[in-house]
Design a protein around this nucleic acid. Structure first.
Lengths: 188, 188
DNA sequence: TTAAGTATTCCATTATATTGGATTAATATC
DNA sequence: GATATTAATCCAATATAATGGAATACTTAA
């Protein structure tokens, strides 16, 4: 996974894939994105490493997420990918006493990210505002959790589900016992 | 060349923040990332829009996520909805020994559905092919599960995640012990 | 205040990303 | 087959990203 290798190539594949899946040709994409045909051609052949500016325009035009563009990929077949527990990306920090597993597929993202969050007793996850219009959707799998979003808060029990705007400071708190939650983050 | 300004500035802030939070100066980061001090300086002042190559090196050096770099965020938000466990829509049939809870919010229906599936011992969920291009994404929350999709099959343990085409007959099987899974259905 | 040390910015140079138009390749239509 | 049409690549010109070292700003110490 430590692919330092030729990110230009990976990008190339992703972008070309995205373009074709939308049935666009170079010129059409050029018009949509404001990036020249020539540049697109070079980028798609890995002969150029675009600037963030152009890359940004491309992601907007193709409606793909910036994030997924550089992550590992997959191809065809029925079973596309198996990600073993040990290799599931996880985050430890950002809060105290909580461990976050990223369940959502790396590429398809943009729209949605899925996390499984395991809280130890009194654990908490404090989040900065996400992007405008972002909505989080949390289901309590085990235990009890308190959600604070903006200036509101709510107590949730096992099986409960809450939906709240996440474009403001928000946090999730466990009480004296451990808990587990499923978190869906919809990016607009 | 329209949006160049905004994105460069957002990036600038994020990167500078990240660098300082790690207590690095430009030279230190330069050594870590292989990007020259001067370039770093320009980038952090929004005077340059780095190429993906250099940006990639920076994200690696700073251990920040590529995704988060371009997020924006602020404004207000509130809790939209709380759905108590007792009222969470559920399905019992369709398989034997499995109970399905629909977690996805109503407005997202069609594009994406999210289910929490609880299998009792030897429970199974057998599904007809969905729409063309449909992809399912399953994470094992508890226990062990076997997935059969088309003519392939895979054994999955707690924490594992699998992604497979669902436009063919597919099924999920628990073994002698109960299990729990999270299922995302993308209708692309 | 001066001086010494460090961190950042400026500047000239080089490398390369980006563009518009010309060239080639691919695809269809007669 | 030839021709028209469209799509992708090549090529020269330009803009700008990237670099290394010099100059400036910014601290800290005496």
């Amino acid at each position: 996974m430590v692919t330092k290798f030729n990110i230009a190539e990976r990008l190339a594949l992703r972008l070309k894939e995205a373009r074709k899946s939308k049935g666009l040709n170079l010129e059409a994409l050029s018009n949509l994105s404001g990036v020249s045909r020539s540049m697109l051609s070079q980028i798609e052949r890995g002969e150029s490493s675009p600037t963030v500016a152009t890359l940004w325009n491309l992601t907007r035009a193709l409606q793909v997420d910036f994030a997924g563009l550089l992550d590992e990929g997959d191809t065809e077949g029925t079973i596309k990918e198996i990600m073993r527990a040990s290799r599931t990306p996880s985050i430890d920090s950002q809060g105290e006493g909580c461990q976050i597993h990223i369940l959502s597929p790396p590429d398809q993202a943009g729209m949605l990210e899925v996390y499984e969050i395991t809280f130890s007793a009194n654990g908490k996850l404090i989040s900065e505002p996400h992007r405008q219009g972002c909505v989080e959707h949390m289901s309590v799998l085990e235990g009890t959790l308190k959600v604070i979003a903006g200036d509101e808060e709510a107590e949730l029990f096992m099986g409960d589900t809450i939906r709240y705007a996440a474009d403001c400071p928000h946090s999730i708190h466990a009480n004296a016992s451990p808990a587990k939650a499923l978190l869906l983050v919809y990016n607009s």
